[in-house]
Nucleic acid binder design. Structure first.
Lengths: 193, 193
DNA sequence: GGTGCCATGTAACGCGTTACATGATTAT
DNA sequence: ATAATCATGTAACGCGTTACATGGCACC
């Protein structure tokens, strides 16, 4: 939903066309190496927003080149935008791919959870190193926003690393005490067979 | 990719049909209130995995009720699964919806970044409270996995809260020194007009 | 006066969602 | 019997992706 709402917000300032919106977004989040937005996403999102009645085409410029469809915010688009600003963003941390991988590694023959943890830790350290480097190369005057984003990511990576250590310690504790294999079990009301 | 790879992993143990896979997944991650997987996702994923040649239909049971298509892992499916276990999971923290909202609130009339931060902090505290409660109600013997997942989420929420405090302090520092409005600017090779 | 890149898009797919369908089993 | 719900799916959509199309402008 980031792109969708960012588009609404940019159109609240003034009507724009696709390329402008893309540039505005990348300027906001810090360029394509931080958060590259593909053109296609802008245009498909614009189409869907128009179908939903949140924006409308104001005019079509055609100065020699390709068409430039200028979009403007509608009333309901403004309402939706305000609702977005007024509400919080729910975290979706519960959906964690690494957690699934780790759990599966515990019940899969030939896959060591310690190896999975080790690999993940290596990747996290590398990401942390890259980010720290890029963060220290930023100019704090002009790129405050990017630094804040770097900080957030770094703090999450550090949390992930601490969690990995915790999990590993936990695994050591219960070593050779295998988890019951998670199995298909009927739930709900028991049957009186 | 969590569901997709979890399916591969479950089929590596033995061939199964859709409902079994759904139950196995929910047992793994801790039931529908933690990570509810909709049946539709299982079946569409199965279809795509079959098209990709990673799994194949082994047989079709039909004991009175609806068809039960039994899927089995193929050779390339096993390879893909092993590749997944052998690689790390990249974090995607750079895509942060709240960050976008915050940045937009800085350049939007009538929206206070302090208010946005306040709302978000409220939501994070509530999520933290709920999770802490649920965590302490779990049985550490039988639900170790869920506790680990709770811990990970809690650590991330705490990181988010610390980051919010940091951002707010930063905003106070530069108060009344507005950011330049992020604008459409041509990049790349400068033109020699 | 061709090569390459800038600016603007379309098509098709992948993962995940909500809404709906359908036949069997169980509760009342 | 009727209603709930279990067990198994299909259809259609939303957000995001990669791959491709196309017409002008800059440069050598």
């Amino acid at each position: 939903m980031s792109v969708r709402n960012a588009i609404l917000s940019f159109l609240a300032q003034r009507p724009r066309h696709g390329y402008e919106l893309r540039n505005a977004f990348e300027a906001l989040v810090g360029g394509e190496d931080t958060w590259g937005v593909k053109p296609a996403q802008i245009y498909t999102t614009l189409t869907r927003l128009e179908e939903a009645g949140l924006i409308c085409q104001e005019s079509v410029e055609q100065d020699g080149g390709p068409e430039k469809r200028i979009y403007a915010l509608t009333e309901s688009g403004l309402l939706e935008l305000q609702a977005w600003f007024g509400s919080g963003v729910e975290s979706e941390h519960q959906r964690d791919e690494f957690f699934v991988k780790l759990m599966l590694s515990l019940s899969t023959e030939g896959v060591s959870p310690y190896r999975v943890i080790h690999t993940q830790r290596g990747l996290l350290y590398q990401e942390l190193h890259d980010l720290t480097t890029r963060r220290s190369r930023s100019n704090p005057k002009t790129e405050l926003a990017q630094i804040l984003l770097f900080d957030k990511t770094i703090m999450h990576l550090e949390a992930d690393l601490r969690w990995l250590d915790m999990v590993e310690a936990r695994l050591d504790e219960i070593q050779r005490q295998p988890l019951p294999e998670p199995e298909s079990k009927p739930r709900g009301r028991p049957k009186k067979s």
